[in-house]
Design a protein around this nucleic acid. Structure first.
Lengths: 125, 125
DNA sequence: CAGGATCCAAAATGATACTG
DNA sequence: CAGTATCATTTTGGATCCTG
């Protein structure tokens, strides 16, 4: 399979064509990848997620979790105790996203020196 | 290879750890993926790119091409004629990004109905 | 504990006009 | 043709305070 086989939809051509872009946006934001990575081994509670994802605000964690839940990638489980407890975990669909994301992360890891060098050369001229 | 093998760097831990995030940001913006996809078959001129990528503004095309050039993923070739002609094409490194991107796009394509349904169900409640 | 609500700063994008 | 410059708008993220 070559890249020529891919039908890259162009933006602004209707809902169907926007979907791929939307899904890529999903993982393109600042925190989603970290959330998915943090959930890879099983359920994690809200504040535990907050602690493990360094630098994320309560607000952004909530917003991103809601978005992932809406897209069916994360499942939210509320235990109506006092104080309340909420577990977040990847759904089966959410788990299938791990592999594609991994290939990108792997590429990023193996090309970072490359890119760092290119930037230095570019900035020098 | 499982996702557990991946070392997801956390943000705010220094330059090295930011790199993967930066590289993912690279393709996470609104247009870069379309630019890369449009360049997959060879050199394309500036205004031809603009025509092929529906909805992109001249400004954003320029900015994103500069960024890709700085990162060594795209090569810019100026022909000093009048009027000037500028060709853009993927570098060898840029071309290696096609495969990882493809796996994500493939995932997005095969899960869009899934996600669309999840959204409808979520919004209904 | 797990958030919702509000306000504000910053970043990304868009629109428009101009130029070698 | 291939940009640059400027301004306006939209989107995104962070800080802070409040609550069942």
């Amino acid at each position: 399979m070559t890249l020529s086989d891919i039908d890259f939809p162009t933006p602004g051509e209707g809902d169907d064509c926007r979907m791929v872009r939307e899904i890529l946006d999903l993982i393109g934001d600042k925190w989603t990848l970290y959330i998915i990575a943090t959930l890879k081994d099983g359920p994690v509670r809200f504040n535990e997620l907050r602690r493990r994802i360094d630098g994320i605000s309560q607000r952004m964690l909530t917003i991103n979790l809601r978005s992932l839940e809406r897209d069916g990638l994360v499942k939210r489980t509320l235990f109506p105790t006092i104080p309340p407890r909420v577990d977040y975990e990847l759904t089966d669909v959410g788990r299938t996203l791990l592999a594609p994301v991994m290939t990108l992360v792997t590429w990023a890891n193996s090309n970072q020196e490359n890119i760092k060098g290119a930037r230095i050369r570019y900035d020098a001229s």
